[in-house]
Computed example of a mutant assay.
Amino acid sequence: MPEIHEVATLTSKGQITLPKPIRQALGVDAGGKVAFDLRGGEIIVTRADAEHEDPAIEAFLGLLEADIRAGRHVQSLPDDLARAMLANAGHAVNLDEDIDGEVAL
């Protein structure tokens, strides 16, 4: 990663805006999460999901999002496949349960 030096101003609420070159280098946009680690008097800023990133899943989700945005019909997964995926992800499985709150893609 290239060396970048940027300065951000702390607001009265303790907030900062990450400068654009830093956001671009980290690959984060609005709604993205960053992690702050204090190490020996320095703060290290990283993408919060960087340790758990899976390129295959990211590519699949990107294709799925493109299909949805293009209005193409997305078939639902077979129940047994959905159960297996959720079980492997460590989530409780109840495909008949209603979804609480809004769903954003």
Rank of each mutant, 00 (worst) to 15 (best):
A66G: 06
L10G: 05
A84L: 12
H52R: 12
K13H: 11
D54C: 13
N94S: 02
R47H: 10
A50N: 07
S76F: 02
A104N: 12
A59C: 03
L18S: 03
A89T: 04
P21C: 10
L38K: 12
A89I: 01
I16V: 14
E65Q: 11
L105Q: 07
I57M: 12
D100L: 11
I57G: 02
I99F: 02
V93E: 00
G40H: 08
K33R: 14
G101V: 00
A56H: 10
A50Y: 07
S76C: 05
G62E: 05
H52T: 14
G71W: 08
D100S: 08
A8W: 06
T9I: 06
G31T: 04
D29P: 00
M1H: 11
R23H: 08
L64S: 04
D98M: 00
H5C: 05
N88R: 13
L18F: 06
I16C: 05
F60A: 15
G32W: 07
G101P: 03
H91P: 01
G27F: 10
L105P: 02
V7I: 13
I57E: 11
A8R: 06
E58D: 13
V74T: 07
V103Y: 04
T17V: 14
H73E: 14
G62H: 06
P55R: 14
A70S: 15
L86K: 02
Q75N: 14
I44R: 14
I99Y: 01
E102A: 14
I57P: 02
T11M: 05
D67Q: 15
G90C: 09
H5A: 10
A59F: 10
R69M: 05
G14W: 11
A104Y: 15
H73G: 06
E6D: 15
H5Y: 06
L105C: 11
S12A: 15
A84S: 11
R23Q: 15
V74M: 06
V74H: 03
T46F: 02
L38C: 04
A84R: 15
E102C: 02
P21L: 07
I43C: 12
R39V: 12
F60K: 09
G62C: 02
L64P: 01
Q24E: 15
R72W: 01
A56Y: 08
I68K: 11
H5W: 07
L26V: 09
Q24S: 11
I43K: 03
D37C: 03
H91L: 14
L81C: 03
L86P: 01
M85D: 01
G101S: 12
P55M: 08
E58A: 15
E6A: 15
K20M: 07
E42S: 14
Q75C: 02
L77T: 02
I22A: 08
Q24D: 15
L61G: 00
R39N: 08
A50G: 07
L38M: 13
G71H: 07
G32Q: 09
G14P: 07
V34W: 06
L95P: 00
L18I: 07
P21Q: 12
P78R: 07
L64K: 10
V34A: 09
R69D: 10
D96M: 00
P19D: 11
Q75F: 09
V28F: 08
